[in-house]
């Protein structure tokens, strides 16, 4: 169900993604995250093309944290910020964080490879159905993604939508 990967660049870090649909308590979850009761990033999965997109954001967040260059207050908010194509923080949370009415959520955990976070604890907190992270594409809202990342039709001819999205995330510091 969940998807876990080590970050090659920071081998003592692991990233786990858990995907839920038919979520009924997104408002409550968001509150938990704000209060720090869930230590994970809660992401709106309709804005995600592929789990790779989350890994790119997480890798960059860990890098920024280690070099003291985070733009936001925590590693988890940094992941959400990194998903956005722009440098506007509140806009990033609005688009890529979860909102009260959302019925799906991607939970992202970053932890030391010697730790084993309690996934069941997360699963228990979400009132919804956990689905394989590989099913992410069935939740993606491609039209909105293309609109938000300003993906042009020409661009899609020379690469995938994921390519276009990741390239914008990686280059936003200098554009």
């Amino acid at each position: 169900m969940d998807f876990t990967r080590e970050l090659e660049l920071f081998p003592d870090h692991k990233v786990t993604q858990l995907l839920f649909k038919d979520v009924k308590n997104s408002r409550e979850l968001r509150q938990c995250a704000v209060e720090g009761k869930i230590s994970g990033a809660l992401i709106n999965p309709t804005m995600l093309v592929n789990p790779f997109q989350v890994l790119v954001a997480a890798n960059k967040a860990v890098h920024s944290q280690k070099s003291g260059k985070m733009k936001t207050r925590s590693l988890y908010s940094e992941i959400i910020f990194n998903l956005s194509p722009t440098n506007n923080i509140s806009e990033a949370f609005k688009r890529f964080g979860i909102s009260d009415g959302d019925d799906s959520v991607m939970v992202v955990l970053v932890y030391d490879r010697n730790e084993s976070p309690s996934l069941s604890n997360i699963v228990a907190k979400v009132d919804g159905q956990q689905v394989p992270v590989g099913d992410l594409s069935s939740l993606s809202n491609l039209t909105k993604i293309k609109q938000l990342y300003k993906v042009t039709p020409q661009e899609e001819k020379c690469g995938t939508l994921l390519d276009a999205v990741v390239c914008r995330m990686a280059s936003k510091d200098v554009v």
């Binding site: 960059k60 890098h63 661009e155 390239c167 990686a170």
Partner: peptide, 27 residues
């Protein structure tokens, strides 16, 4: 380093194939 990243994105937006940028460490 900065110009490489910028021009890659600019080209891709115009439909010119270039490698995707995954991550940049400016330090």
């Amino acid at each position: 380093t900065v110009q490489e990243v910028r021009s890659i994105l600019r080209c891709r937006k115009a439909g010119i194939s270039t490698p995707v940028v995954y991550f940049v460490d400016y330090t």
